[in-house]
Lab assay of single mutants.
Amino acid sequence: MSGIALSRLAQERKAWRKDHPFGFVAVPTKNPDGTMNLMNWECAIPGKKGTPWEGGLFKLRMLFKDDYPSSPPKCKFEPPLFHPNVYPSGTVCLSILEEDKDWRPAITIKQILLGIQELLNEPNIQDPAQAEAYTIYCQNRVEYEKRVRAQAKKFAPS
């Protein structure tokens, strides 16, 4: 494992614990031996107030490669969400998460999670990743928002 990646992720964890947006979660997972795995984080993004996503808490896994922060983490909703920019596998399609697009090593975990929260309610229809959600979003916004509200209710924190 890269010392650069681990040191950056340790800084990220410290900064997150000191200050993070209300309702968001970002925690490194534990290895079988109980030690912390900084390369694999369990996160959760709350649906934004005043949107059909409100009330939901959407679980996301963030996986970092050894060359982080040169390369972005892979962000994957578990379980996958109904959304035009979420692949059926759950992987998020967002330009700041793509090395050859808008990724920059200075982007923080907090910025990534806030960017994904923004994307939930403002899909990028130029870059669809899920045919069904994309089609319904474009053709029947009322039905799309109904499905999103049902999903938010399903993923409401207990």
Rank of each mutant, 00 (worst) to 15 (best):
L97Y: 05
M36V: 06
Q117L: 09
A15G: 10
P46T: 06
F77D: 00
W16H: 04
Q151M: 02
P28V: 06
S71V: 05
A133F: 06
R17M: 03
T135I: 11
H83E: 00
E143W: 08
L119V: 07
D67G: 14
G34E: 09
Y68T: 06
L119S: 06
D100I: 15
F77M: 05
K30W: 03
E54D: 06
V142P: 14
R17L: 02
V92N: 00
P84F: 02
D19R: 04
Q130N: 13
G115V: 00
P128N: 04
N40I: 07
I112F: 15
K110C: 06
E145M: 11
I136Y: 11
Y144E: 02
N31P: 07
Q11K: 11
W103A: 01
E143N: 12
Y134P: 05
E143Q: 11
E132G: 11
K110E: 07
G90Q: 04
F22S: 04
Q130V: 05
V92M: 01
M62F: 14
D102L: 04
V25R: 13
N85W: 03
A129I: 02
N121W: 09
S89W: 09
F77I: 04
A26R: 03
E54H: 08
G34K: 07
K49E: 14
V142R: 14
G56D: 02
L119Q: 02
I4G: 07
R147A: 10
F24M: 10
P80T: 12
G34H: 14
Y87V: 07
I107C: 15
G55E: 12
D67K: 07
N124W: 09
I45E: 03
E42L: 06
P73K: 03
I96M: 08
P69G: 02
I112C: 11
P73S: 06
Y68Q: 00
P72Y: 00
N31S: 11
K14S: 05
V142S: 14
I96Q: 06
R147P: 04
A152P: 01
R104P: 00
F77A: 00
R13N: 02
S89M: 15
E145C: 08
S70L: 14
L113A: 13
V92K: 01
N37V: 13
H20S: 01
I45G: 04
G56N: 02
K101M: 08
N85G: 01
G56C: 00
R13M: 02
P88K: 11
F155P: 02
G47D: 06
K154D: 12
H20M: 00
L113V: 12
V27W: 06
P21R: 00
L120A: 06
N85E: 06
M62V: 12
Y68A: 05
Y87F: 14
I136N: 07
E118V: 12
P21I: 01
E12D: 00
P128Y: 02
R104W: 04
P73T: 10
F77H: 01
Q117V: 06
L57V: 08
D102H: 14
E143S: 13
D66N: 10
N31W: 10
A15V: 10
K101H: 14
T35Y: 02
A133Y: 06
V27I: 12
L113C: 13
K14T: 07
D100V: 15
R17S: 07
K59D: 08
M36P: 02
Q111D: 12
Y144C: 00
K101G: 09
P105F: 01
F82H: 07
E54V: 09
E145S: 07
K59V: 12
K154L: 12
R13V: 01
L97D: 08
T135Q: 12
P79S: 14
T135C: 15
F155R: 04
I4T: 06
D127W: 01
A152M: 05
C93I: 00
L119G: 02
E12V: 04
T135G: 06
V86E: 00
S158Y: 01
D67C: 12
A150Q: 15
I45L: 06
G50S: 12
T91S: 15
T91D: 06
V27M: 14
N140E: 12
R147E: 10
G90Y: 12
E54W: 07
F58G: 05
R8V: 14
I116N: 00
K74M: 15
P28G: 15
I96A: 02
F82P: 03
G23S: 11
F77T: 06
A129G: 04
P80D: 12
D19C: 03
